[in-house]
Write a protein that binds this DNA or RNA. Structure first.
Lengths: 130, 130
DNA sequence: AGACTATATAACCTGAAGGCTATGGAACCT
DNA sequence: AGGTTCCATAGCCTTCAGGTTATATAGTCT
């Protein structure tokens, strides 16, 4: 069996995935790869950075499982492997409800504000919990 | 206006967010905070780590905008601020198509993730003795 | 005032991240 | 064979991340 690329998610892989995504160069590389395979030099071209630096970034992405290496003559084209992105998304999904609630709360707050603009001001007091 | 700590999303904030999420201790802290406010000592309790280490982690999370600090007597309870998580999710959304086509195993994967991240992280590497 | 609790800060250490230059090695083209 | 292109690796340097212990600060309770 070939690189269908599925690996059992380990806690360490989430670490590696998020760490890989923490660098803007690497995120840009992934964005580029989202529109298709690309060779190392193609990937390096947009950046004001040496080729070995790009190779290092690619190694980070590869060790996180986010990309894989093909071969085409001297080229070693990289391809996007999205499984770790799925895991990261999965982790974040647990919070989606949370911030969606928050935005609902924000909406409600704005509603209240709007409503109160038309009304006599209510003096506020900050209170403590018993 | 001071509350809610909302900041305009900048590229640098994505850096900070993903970097913050790259540490299992910090992810566990966020998971804990998802079920409500908690004091520093409460947050520190599950980990085999000194209190200052936790404070450092909290500072990282705070600078990424992922948590905010309240006050209750001597306590400085932390609260989850999910806006950066929304931004991170937003970034990842662009890749959803890449993995959604492929897998029905996704559900199982997410199940596993949920189970694994529910526990406190495995203790960090202990290299050498002084 | 003085003790106790909760958290923050300082100083330090180790290792790794991310950049560089220089070099190596494979595959292609005359 | 010899030159060229594409990429990887090695060695070096500097900065930062994540931990430690020790100490400082702030609020609470006698």
């Amino acid at each position: 069996m070939e690189p269908s690329g599925y690996e059992i998610p380990s806690p360490g892989r989430l670490d590696a995935t998020f760490a890989a995504l923490a660098d803007p160069t690497r995120r840009a590389i992934l964005a580029r790869l989202a529109s298709g395979e690309a060779s190392v030099s193609e990937l390096a071209e947009p950046f004001a950075m040496s080729q070995p630096a790009i190779s290092k970034h690619l190694k980070v992405l590869e060790r996180a499982g986010l990309i894989s290496r093909g071969r085409d003559a001297q080229r070693r084209p990289r391809r996007l492997e999205a499984a770790p992105l799925a895991e990261a998304t999965g982790w974040l999904e647990r919070y989606r409800q949370f911030w969606e609630e928050n935005y609902q709360a924000l909406d409600a707050m704005l509603e209240d504000l709007k409503a109160q603009e038309a009304r006599p001001p209510t003096p506020r007091k900050r209170k403590k919990q018993p």
